[in-house]
Amino acid sequence: MNNIKNKKIAIVGGGPGGLTLARILQMRHADVTVYERDIHKDARAQGATLDLHHESGLRALEEAGLMEAFKANYRPGADRMRIIDQHGTIVLEDNHKEDGPAEAYRPEIDRGPLKKILLESLHPDTVVWDCQFSGLTPFNEGWHLHFKDGHTTYADIVIAADGANSKIRPYITPIRPFYAGVTVVEGAVYHSEKNTPQIHQWLNGGKIFGMGDEKSLIVSSKGDGSLVFYTGCNTPENWVQESGIDFSDKAQVMAWFKATFTGWSPVWEELFENATGTFIPRPQYCMPFDQTWEALPNLTMLGDAAHLMPPYAGEGVNMAMLDALELGLCLTSEDYPDTHSAIAAYEQAMRTRASATAEMTMESTAALHSPEAISFLVQIVS
């Protein structure tokens, strides 16, 4: 604990990783502030349901003393999954049972409730909203953090939890992610029971993996009666710009879907016809498996900022929360003589873990967008 005694810790980014770290540190009496660019806690629509894994996300919640709150907010049955081919034929139903082995138990929770549990576990005013980070300058033994609105604050230790496009990562390493070969187009449908009745029935409160013709269409139900969906296609890296598609124009996106997913059942079109708001194209990137850098004594990172990878192994939020737990434990451990060695130990273990997961994720990304996608997925879940 002595390493962070009387030290100010700044976490940039208030996603599940940043908030989990703040909770772990506060339980050990650290002075921690989270700087989040969202204007307030409800500023952003929260994305898909998250399945938390026994050895990572759930372990972090257990250590954070939040399992009771989690059990009150998770969605029983949301881990149900159907694999459906492009013609609308159900290939496999996978209904996880809670009485199976703990390691196989992957309960689902919506991102919104998870964030709420974490926020409510923190001291009042831990999170400073509407703070868009713009830069760092070294000062004494720590850093001045600069924000877009012109204000500056000091911290002895800064932790980047600011996601895929981290503005802090370049202060640690110049290593950049490589393109993973797939672009996702994301959409959402409200009131899915009314607006997309056939898809809603297939979903049955869980997830659909639509696979075929080297493409994927993943649909996830949410507790508020809405759903989110993600197409996945093998494309060149600059496809979004070169396609000429205006993703805020439903007719253009619908025309693209029909042309690209030709031969798919018309049922899938329900999603595009009834989507609300703009579609979001997301080219997928992954950090190199062998990335390494010299540890700094007062600056580190976690989650996507440290090891961005595509979502096709469901590990993102779990790894961010495990990073948060392990970094919090390292910083507050008596085993390290100073913060430099604590950060170095955390980063070494984090990179090793992330490298193996990234490799597995890239294999999964390729397999799910190959002619063998359905047999690959069936093998994994059955």
Rank of each mutant, 00 (worst) to 15 (best):
M254W: 05
G232Q: 05
H191E: 09
H200D: 12
A255V: 04
I208N: 07
S220E: 08
V240W: 02
K207A: 14
I159N: 05
C233W: 13
A251Y: 06
P236S: 13
I159M: 06
P236V: 07
S192A: 13
V267T: 15
N165C: 14
K194I: 08
Y171V: 03
I199W: 01
W268E: 05
E270Q: 14
N234G: 06
P174N: 15
A180R: 05
F247W: 13
S221D: 13
T231E: 07
D156V: 00
G263Q: 01
K167F: 14
L227N: 05
S166D: 13
K167P: 06
S243H: 04
S243P: 01
W264Y: 13
G225H: 10
F257I: 11
L217Q: 08
V219I: 14
S226Y: 06
S243C: 04
P197Y: 03
E242W: 06
L227I: 15
N234L: 12
S221C: 10
Y230R: 03
K222F: 10
A255N: 12
D246N: 15
P266K: 12
R169P: 01
A251I: 11
S248W: 01
H200F: 09
E237Q: 12
G210V: 03
T183A: 01
I168A: 02
I157A: 11
S248V: 04
P177E: 08
V228T: 10
S166M: 13
T153Q: 07
